[in-house]
Design a protein around this nucleic acid. Structure first.
Length: 490
RNA sequence: CGGGGUGUAGCGCAGUUGGCUAGCGCGCCACGUUCGGGACGUGGAGGCCGAAGGUUCGAGUCCUUUCACCCCGACCA
């Protein structure tokens, strides 16, 4: 498949460019792989944030904010957690600069060394749990359902725009519960929130499942995830929700008095999605003309391009366009009139397609005369001329249809690139083509590691809603009760 | 940290055996003609050829050192 897909990873850079650039940091800077999110890209992120934030609030969560800096000692408390992050942490060691006494600019003041180094948060479990300790005495203090919108830093060996930047924006939910059942329920609820967002807002179909032990979050008892398939056949983990058990409560000594008056450790969850979602959005829907944005996340729904000769005609058409804009806006549709005089209309068409604006209306003197407008939809690139009468209703319906169509198209793609495989030989062949492979696995980390080693494919997840089916592991022949999802992943 | 590759204008590149004032495309600026799918013409601005050292009458080009970036692996959302 990979060969036929035109918009492979290397081709995305063209349409990334409207959204982000790689940060232009000073030469010799040790920081690599940071990105500048441009206004248009940030507008998409804001739409995502707003939708997610509302979903969090609707499920009973509140926002809070915790420090960027975490004392080093906090990390030593949960052993597997620190194992997971130790290798990719930025560390603050000093708090002051001074003029170089040798006149060579600015140096770090060696006198200003911190007694305890501070870690720039790679994730906030440790600082949040050391805070929660002070918030929790009784079962009456529970549950705590906090979310934080923040940036985090992970010093990755290798970065990739959107998918793995050294600094990224995300949200992280951290909850504390009195019972295991409640915490598990929360974990599952939030992965469903993410699945709902991915599918209904982003138009990206996802498989909801659990990670295997070796793919699990550092410090978690269970990691739930949503996995999406990109158009180049690679899988992308788009969101995770972790059941942390009592690991962090024990590490940070967070106990509460239950109804019986006995002390118990609280049960925890954490869950997050990041700007990586924008990468998913791009790679799931883009075509050779650029981005394709689902209307629900498009910063601009409709662009009106006036076609004219001379200022008189421009004014005449723009006035009509403004009236149409008002009608559309009354339906909650975001409209931009592109009346730039310094570029031609063909250029504007191409540019708005590149940026993924869902609907384009072009109006020239002919349309003005006839009371019509040319309407073009971004997802199918179809154009037709329709009446200006009832335009707002037409566009509103079209946007709904496009939202659905974009999802359906992605779903169809995924279904066409999901294969059931029963032998390891076939697996090795099939994995070269990309896509999801459903196969039996004996449940051991050894087999999983062997497969990864030999094929670069990982178990993306053990799907939650999959039908049980007796089978044998394609590698070892040991019994298996259900198929798991394999893929090569970002 | 291993294996490959690249540094020349804002971006993308050519310049391969050393030679005069370093070139092309895009973009940018000015004027004009255009304007229903990325316009065209004319003129113009913009470069210590990644850095340092060396060879030479002469270095973008050869040698040495060094720095940076990109790709592929290991790590990861």
């Amino acid at each position: 498949m990979a060969k036929e897909v035109v918009n492979r990873e290397e081709n995305y850079s063209q349409w990334y460019n409207n959204l982000v650039t790689k940060a232009d940091l000073a030469e010799n800077s040790a920081v690599r792989g940071c990105m500048v999110i441009k206004p248009y890209g940030y507008a998409i992120w804001e739409k995502m944030q707003a939708a997610l934030d509302k979903m969090f609030k609707d499920t009973g969560h509140v926002n809070a904010y915790f420090p960027l800096f975490i004392p080093k000692s906090f990390f030593s408390k949960e052993a597997s957690h620190v194992d997971g992050f130790a290798k990719e942490c930025a560390v603050v060691t000093h708090y002051r600069l001074k003029n170089d006494p040798n006149g060579k600019g600015i140096i770090v003041d060696p006198e200003a060394r911190l007694e305890e180094e501070l870690i720039v948060r790679p994730t906030s479990e440790t600082i949040i749990w050391s805070t929660y300790k002070n918030w929790i005495q009784s079962y009456r203090d529970l549950p705590i359902l906090c979310n934080q919108w923040a940036n985090v830093v992970r010093w990755e060996m290798r970065t990739r725009l959107f998918l793995r930047t050294a600094e990224f924006l995300w949200q992280e939910g951290h909850t504390a519960h009195a019972t295991k059942e409640e915490a598990v329920e929360e974990t599952e609820k939030m992965i469903q929130v993410y699945a709902n967002f991915a599918q209904n807002w982003m138009g990206v179909p996802v498989i909801v499942g659990k990670k295997t032990e070796s793919e699990r979050f550092a410090g978690a008892v269970d990691t739930y995830c949503i996995e999406a398939l990109m158009q180049d056949g690679k899988a992308l983990q788009a969101g995770t929700s972790h059941f942390l058990g009592q690991n962090f409560a024990k590490a940070f000594d967070v106990q509460f008095a239950n109804k019986e008056g006995k002390l118990d450790y609280v049960w925890a969850t954490s869950w997050g999605v990041s700007t990586r979602l924008m990468g998913a959005l791009i790679m799931a829907h883009s075509d050779n003309n650029g981005l394709v944005l689902p209307p629900m996340l498009a910063p601009i729904h409709v662009v009106i391009v006036p076609i004219y000769k001379g200022e008189e005609e421009l004014e005449m058409i723009c006035n009509r366009a403004k009236e149409l804009k008002k009608e559309l806006e009354a339906k909650g549709i975001v409209v931009k009139i592109d009346n730039r005089d310094n570029v031609r209309s063909g250029f504007k068409f191409a540019e708005h397609e590149l940026k993924g604006v869902p609907v384009r209306l072009a109006m020239g003197p002919r349309d003005y005369q006839n009371g019509t407008v040319e309407i073009a939809r971004r997802d199918t690139l179809e154009k037709q001329t329709i009446s200006q009468e009832g335009l707002a209703d037409y566009v509103a319906r079209l946007l709904d249809e496009m939202q659905k169509n974009i999802f359906d198209k992605a779903l169809k793609f995924r279904e066409e690139h999901t294969y059931k495989v029963d032998t390891y030989e076939e697996f090795k062949q099939k994995i070269e083509d990309g896509g999801f492979i459903l196969a039996h696995w004996d449940g051991t980390a050894e087999t999983e590691a062997k497969i990864k080693e030999e094929t670069k494919a990982t178990i993306r997840c053990i799907p939650l809603n999959a039908e049980l089916e007796d089978g044998v592991c394609m590698v070892t022949g040991k019994p298996s009760k259900q198929r798991v999802v394999f893929a090569r992943a970002y």
